[in-house]
Design a protein around this nucleic acid. Structure first.
Length: 514
RNA sequence: GCGCCAUUAGCUCAGUGGAAGAGCAUCUGACUUUUAAUCAGGUGGUCGAAGGUUCGAAUCCUUCAUGGCGCACCA
């Protein structure tokens, strides 16, 4: 045997090389050696830390010379033979460790330094050491003792470019989080935002509730549901597409302020703004109307900007958003007049809507009815202008089957044409994206039944069945109530300046790979 | 569902018809304050998959898979 071959043998007798399986074999050999030496890295159950890695540099003045106990993942290694620097990171940040052969071997035993040089990037290390500053001024920890708390068998992505492959970032979010710390930060921020929504509502005496995810009858929105099967009942059930109908039942039952933050499921394609399962906040507040809810919504958005994201100005793609109250407010009708050059008075019939749509150069689908066609004009001509926070309110009734209608005399006073019924509804737009939807809730059980039955009759709406129990609940009487739905993912997107919904989801929906 | 683009070593990327490459990681050696450490020498490939064209294909063609972006559906 040559000297080289002998030395390879010492590293475990595994094939030398760098294919994925070979890299793994080398680490398995290191693991086996550790276990043989009675140092199984997986045996540890706890490691009591005195500090987080991220505080060593900023709190250096207070910490200099003191002994600290830290833990973290090895992220880089600069080995200089008889001394080495390793960076470890924990949730709080990174710190540089200094290993010095003579000192470490003296403190922890002969061979400690050489064993430390067998550490791989990605290993999780516990250390005890002294805080000091290197010659170049870098706050560091000189290690007196270390313990391998977990051995990695995989190879981390490159230290400089990191992991950029989008597919792998989403499929293996844990790797993304390790090497792209902004991903960890974004998901942390999302968690804080949701917690802050709860705190905000709890302070206002709202009750958080949980309602069923499995629905026998699907309602509360117009969307295609996912269908599942309940074996014991031998019946198909639906994953909920909205929280609305159950929350209103709780209002009927006497809760006066309720909310739920929960996952809803819509059987649709994915895009930068859509994930088939997403998180919705819905709240209902008895005895207030949509204008109160508008104020609450504005307060909530600004509160989150101040308390979680610490910024009232956000760069969102090409947009510079200013989240300053009061937000712009415009009626649906005014918005049409301003951006589409026509108002509801010009849009009282399907024929007129089609004609206006064509005048504006829009493709108006033949099968679309009045409401859908009107919505087409709004989406194409108005939404692209709603960059800064804007409340659009007073929608045509047809677009809002769960919203209370504005009485004819009031609508006439406000200048709406008699032919178009208006309802008490608003939506909040941020960066041209609908983020919140609110109504003064329809509590007329007769009207609600008529609208729901019309939806079922209109095959295009795709609603199979009326939720009879919900209608019964309304017959028992629901007080005048303001309601709100907020797409939490979208709100976090905007507030964090993240133009893709996938980035604010820990595990965005991807096709199963084989 | 439709269109465009992408897919090469563990990671980041070159390579447009003629011998599969680089950097990082990894392995070996040197180096006791480095920080993208440095220096020297190695290993590592089903070029996304399957067909086809060609003397010859990572490269051209077809189909498929996955992803991204846009459209459609939708919040």
């Amino acid at each position: 045997m040559t000297e080289d071959q002998e030395q390879q043998g010492h590293s475990g007798g595994q094939p030398e090389g760098a294919s994925h399986s070979e890299l793994r074999s080398i680490k398995l050999a290191k693991l086996a050696a550790l276990r043989e030496g009675g140092r199984d890295p997986y045996r540890h159950v706890r490691w009591d830390r005195t500090h987080n890695c991220g505080v060593i540099a900023p709190d250096f003045e207070q910490l200099e010379g003191s002994t600290v106990v830290l833990a973290g993942r090895v992220m880089s290694k600069r080995d200089m033979g008889k001394a080495a620097f390793l960076d470890i990171q924990d949730e709080s940040g990174r710190v540089q460790l200094y290993f010095k052969k003579d000192k470490l071997d003296e403190a922890q035993g002969e061979g400690s330094f050489d064993a430390a040089m067998q550490l791989d990037l990605g290993d999780i290390l516990g250390v005890r050491g002294t805080v000091f500053r290197t010659r170049t001024g870098q706050a560091s920890v000189e290690v007196q003792a270390y313990e391998l708390l977990c051995k990695t068998l995989e190879t981390l992505p490159e230290k400089w470019h990191g992991l950029t492959d989008t597919e792998q970032r989403f499929r293996q979010r844990y790797v993304d989080m390790i090497v792209n710390r902004e991903s960890l930060a974004r998901l942390t921020q999302r968690s804080r935002a949701v917690a802050e929504v709860r705190r905000f509502l709890d302070q206002r005496d709202f009750l958080e509730v949980e309602t069923p995810v499995l629905h026998a009858v699907c309602g509360g929105a117009t969307a295609e549901p996912f269908v599942t099967h309940w074996n014991a009942l031998k019946a198909d059930y639906y994953l909920r597409i909205a929280l609305e109908l159950h929350l209103k039942r709780l209002i009927v039952g006497g809760m006066e302020r309720v909310y739920e933050i929960g996952r809803v499921f819509r059987n649709e394609g994915v895009s930068t703004r859509h994930n088939p399962e997403f998180t919705m906040l819905e709240l209902y507040w008895a005895y207030v109307d949509y204008s109160d809810i508008m104020q609450l919504t504005e307060d909530l958005v600004v509160h989150l900007a101040d308390n979680v994201f610490q910024a009232r100005e956000v760069t969102y793609g090409d947009y510079a958003l200013k989240l300053e109250a009061p937000f712009a407010k415009m009626t649906f009708n005014e918005a049409l007049g301003r951006y589409a050059g026509c108002t509801l008075a010009d849009l009282t019939t399907l024929e007129q809507v089609r004609a206006q749509g064509e005048r504006l150069g829009l493709h108006m689908p033949r099968e679309a009815g009045y409401e859908k066609s009107l919505d087409e004009i709004f989406k194409e001509k108005v939404e692209p202008h709603l960059i800064q926070p804007t409340f659009i309110y007073d929608y045509p009734k047809g677009l809002s089957p769960l919203a209370k209608s504005m009485p004819r005399d009031i609508a006439r006073e406000k200048g709406y044409p008699d032919e178009v019924e208006i309802c008490y509804r608003f939506e909040l737009f941020l960066a041209c994206m609908e983020v919140a939807n609110s109504f003064s809730e329809l509590n007329d059980p007769i009207d609600q039944r008529a609208r729901m039955e019309a939806q079922v009759a209109d095959k295009a709406e795709g609603i199979a069945e009326v939720d009879e129990d919900f209608l019964t609940a309304l017959e028992y009487g629901m007080p005048p109530t303001g309601g709100l739905g907020v797409g939490i993912d979208r709100l976090v997107m905007v507030l964090s300046g993240t133009p893709s919904i996938r980035e604010v989801l820990a595990f965005p929906q991807l096709r199963d790979k084989k």
